Amino acid sequence: MVAIEQYIRDIPDFPKQGVVFKDITPLLASAEATAFCLSELLKFIEGQRIDKVVGIESRGFFFATLLANELQAGFVPIRKPGKLPYNTLKQPYTLEYGMDALEIHEDAIQKGDKVLMHDDVLATGGTARAACKLIEKLGGEIVQCNFLIELSFLKGAEKLNKYELRAMLTY
């Protein structure tokens, strides 16, 4: 067992004053910690069929691609506007420190696909909820939303209460 908390670095006042950013790059720099996290995230969805794993730009991509590979599922990136080269659907949202939007390729998910949505951190839930809306607009069925970290004091889980929600660490 790896104490992954030791690999999470707090960065005060990033990206703006008053926000304490949870930096996972030390975790990613450790092969042992990364392997441990991957095995734990896989346990969350053990025995469930997954057709697509959706990762949210950009830190959600790291484990989403690993999960997709292990699950023999497709990987689908959800990105900020203007980053995807094909036709997209767009979903605006409010996040902890402002407004933004997410996009997904319009053909990335097929009706009835069983989808695992992954991101590194669940904060206010705006980003994850926007991603879920995009998945559902394309006909995907969200099996679970999972995260490395949940910042429970920001109450993001309340915006995702209709989904199974799992996080490795809760602050």
Rank of each mutant, 00 (worst) to 15 (best):
M1S: 15
V2S: 10
E5C: 08
E5G: 15
Q6L: 13
Y7I: 07
I8Y: 01
D10H: 15
D13I: 00
D13S: 01
P15D: 00
P15E: 00
Q17C: 06
G18R: 05
G18N: 02
G18Q: 01
F21K: 02
T25K: 02
T25C: 08
P26E: 10
L28W: 01
L28F: 07
L28H: 08
E32I: 07
T34V: 13
T34F: 08
C37N: 11
C37V: 14
E40K: 15
E40D: 14
L42W: 02
K43Q: 15
F44N: 14
I45A: 08
G47P: 09
G47R: 10
Q48N: 14
Q48M: 14
R49L: 13
I50Q: 03
I50C: 04
D51F: 02
D51M: 03
K52M: 01
K52I: 06
K52N: 03
G55W: 04
I56F: 01
I56N: 02
E57T: 02
E57M: 00
R59Q: 04
G60P: 01
F61Y: 04
F62Y: 09
A64E: 03
T65K: 06
L66A: 11
L67S: 04
A68L: 06
A68R: 02
A68H: 04
E70A: 14
L71I: 07
A73W: 05
A73H: 06
G74E: 06
V76K: 06
I78E: 06
K80A: 13
G82W: 11
G82R: 09
P85I: 02
Y86C: 12
T88G: 09
L89R: 13
K90P: 12
P92Q: 09
P92Y: 03
Y93L: 09
Y93I: 12
T94H: 14
L95D: 10
L95T: 11
E96G: 12
G98N: 08
G98D: 04
D100L: 08
D100P: 10
L102C: 05
L102R: 08
L102K: 07
E103G: 07
I104V: 12
H105Y: 03
H105T: 05
H105E: 09
H105G: 07
H105I: 03
D107R: 06
A108Y: 01
A108H: 01
A108I: 02
D113M: 13
D113L: 13
K114D: 00
K114V: 02
L116C: 07
H118M: 10
D119P: 03
V121K: 12
A123W: 04
T127Y: 07
A128E: 10
K133Y: 12
L134E: 06
L134I: 05
L134S: 04
E136A: 07
L138V: 00
L138F: 00
G139F: 00
G140P: 00
G140F: 01
G140T: 00
I142G: 08
V143I: 13
V143Y: 12
N146F: 11
L148V: 13
E150V: 08
E150W: 11
E150C: 09
L151T: 04
S152M: 11
S152L: 11
S152F: 05
S152K: 15
S152C: 14
A157T: 13
A157M: 11
K159T: 10
L160E: 06
L160K: 11
Y163Q: 11
L165R: 14
R166F: 14
R166M: 14
R166L: 13
A167Q: 11
A167Y: 14
A167C: 14
M168W: 12
L169A: 10
T170E: 14
T170V: 15
